[in-house]
Design a protein around this nucleic acid. Structure first.
Lengths: 226, 226
DNA sequence: CGATGCAAGATTGCATACATTGCGCCTTCA
DNA sequence: TGAAGGCGCAATGTATGCAATCTTGCATCG
C-alpha cells in the first residue's frame, strides 16, 4: 500500500502517485474536485499513462472516486465515513496492540521517543499540529508493524492515513490533547510489560477518544468534513 | 471491491479483470505462475492497456504480486498467510455479525434460505463443494452488507474471496462440515433475535472452526497451500 | 418562455509504437 | 575449467494517437 514515506521517486508512476497523494492529504485539492488526467500529466511532466495508473491506485485506496468515462474526483467525506473508519479502527487497532504486546517485536525505545517528541511538539502556546500528526502516524505505524500481521498493518495504515485530511489534532481540546499524549506513554508501558489486555484497552480508549473529539467538533461545524 | 458477481462486462477492462480473477480463483493459474501482459491481451482479444489495469487492481487486492520491471505473478499462499487472513476474519466478521444483529438490515429470509440450500448441497454421498462454497460466500456477503459499514464489507470480502483458492470445504471432515452448516442456522437465529452478543459469538466460533480445519489439513499435507 | 434536440468541445478508454530494464546465454580471459 | 563481461532477446514502462462517451451551450419548436 506504500504509504507516504520513502518509495522510489525515480520511476514516474511512483512519483506521480506520491505527488497527487500529497496534494490531497495536504488539502491542496478540495473534496469533490475533479482530477483531470491531462492537467496532472502536464503539471508533472509525464504522459497520461502513469497518471492514470496512479489515479487507479488512489481509487483502490479510497482517496479518490472513479466515475466511468467521467473522470476521477477527490473523495469527500461525510459523518458516516468518519464513523465507519473509526469504527474499524476501534476494533482493529486494539487487537493489533494486543498482538504487539506479546509478539516481542515492539520497538519500545522508538515508541517512547516518539511519545516524548509529541509532548515537546504540543508544549508551548501554539502546538505544532503538523508535527504532532507526523509523529502520531509514525507511532501508530510502528505499533501496527509490531503486530506481526502484515495484512492487518496494510489495511489499517490506509485507514489511519485518510484522517490526515481532517487535521484531527487541531480539533482537540487542550485537555483531549493532553489525554491523547498520555495514552501514548501508557501504551508504551503496556507493551513493555507485555500485557496484551492492557495494551488493547489503552488503544481502544485512545481511538474512541479521538473519534469522540472529531464527532464533537462535527456537531458544532456540522456538514462535510473535507 | 467488485467481487465476482455482476459487474459490467461490456467494458474491456472490467471483463479482463473478471477473467483473470476467475482463472486464479478456480485454480487454472497456479501460485507463482507469471501472468504475461501480452499473452493475456491476445488471449482476451484486447490490448495490453486494459490488461495492465486489471493486473494492478488484482495486485491491490493481493491476488497477484507485482515485481517492478519483471511482471506479475499469481500470489502463492503460505501457512502464515492463512493465519493472517483468518486472524483478521476472526476479529472482523464477529463484529460485523454483531452490527448486523442490531442494524435491522439483515435479510433473515434470504440467509435462512441459503443455509438450507447449503444443507441440501452437502447431503448425499458426495457433497457439491463448489456449490457449498458459492452459497457460503453469498451468505457471508449478505451478513457483511447488513453490518451497514461499507468499508468493513469491502475489506472483508477481499479476505473472504481469497480462501476460495484453497477449496476450504473439501478439507473439512464430515463432522466439521455438519457443524459449519449448523453455525449458519444458529447465526440466522441470533440475527432474527437481534442478539448482538450471540451473533458475534457464533460467527467467531464459525471462523475459528474453519481456521482449525484448514490448519489441521495443512499439518498433514504441510507446505504451501496453493 | 420553457423544454427538447442537436452539435461541438472536452475527457476518458483503448490501441499502438517507442523506450527502458532485466535476464540468459555466449564469448572471452585468467 | 570457471568466472566475468557483454550482447541480444523478451517483457515491462511510457508516450502518443484514435475512438467512444459525456457534458454543455445554443438553437429550435411547442
Amino acid at each position: 500500500m506504500e504509504t507516504s514515506t520513502d518509495a522510489d521517486v525515480s520511476r514516474p508512476a511512483e512519483a506521480v502517485y506520491e505527488a497527487i497523494r500529497r496534494q490531497i492529504i495536504t488539502g491542496q485539492r478540495a473534496g469533490g474536485e475533479w482530477l483531470r488526467e491531462e492537467e496532472l500529466a502536464t503539471a508533472l511532466s509525464v504522459s497520461r499513462t502513469p497518471v492514470r495508473e496512479a489515479l487507479r491506485r488512489l481509487a483502490a485506496e479510497g482517496l479518490v472516486q472513479h466515475e466511468r468515462n467521467r473522470g476521477v474526483r477527490v473523495a469527500s467525506w461525510s459523518a458516516r465515513d468518519v464513523d465507519e473508519i473509526f469504527g474499524l479502527r476501534s476494533v482493529l487497532e486494539p487487537w493489533a496492540s494486543a498482538l504487539a504486546a506479546t509478539s516481542g517485536a515492539a520497538p519500545i525505545g522508538e515508541l517512547a521517543s516518539l511519545a516524548e517528541q509529541m509532548d515537546r511538539a504540543a508544549a508551548g502556546r501554539t502546538p505544532d499540529y503538523d508535527e504532532i500528526t507526523r509523529l502520531n502516524n509514525a507511532f501508530h505505524r510502528l505499533v501496527l508493524e509490531a503486530s506481526g500481521n502484515r495484512r492487518l498493518a496494510t489495511m489499517l495504515m490506509a485507514l489511519v492515513d485518510v484522517p490526515l485530511v481532517w487535521r484531527t489534532f487541531s480539533h482537540y481540546s487542550p485537555e483531549a490533547l493532553r489525554r491523547s499524549l498520555a495514552h501514548h506513554h501508557e501504551l508504551v508501558d503496556a507493551l513493555r510489560a507485555g500485557d496484551a489486555g492492557w495494551a488493547e484497552s489503552v488503544m481502544r480508549s485512545h481511538v474512541r477518544a479521538a473519534w469522540n473529539s472529531l464527532r464533537a467538533d462535527q456537531d458544532r461545524a456540522d456538514g462535510e468534513v473535507s
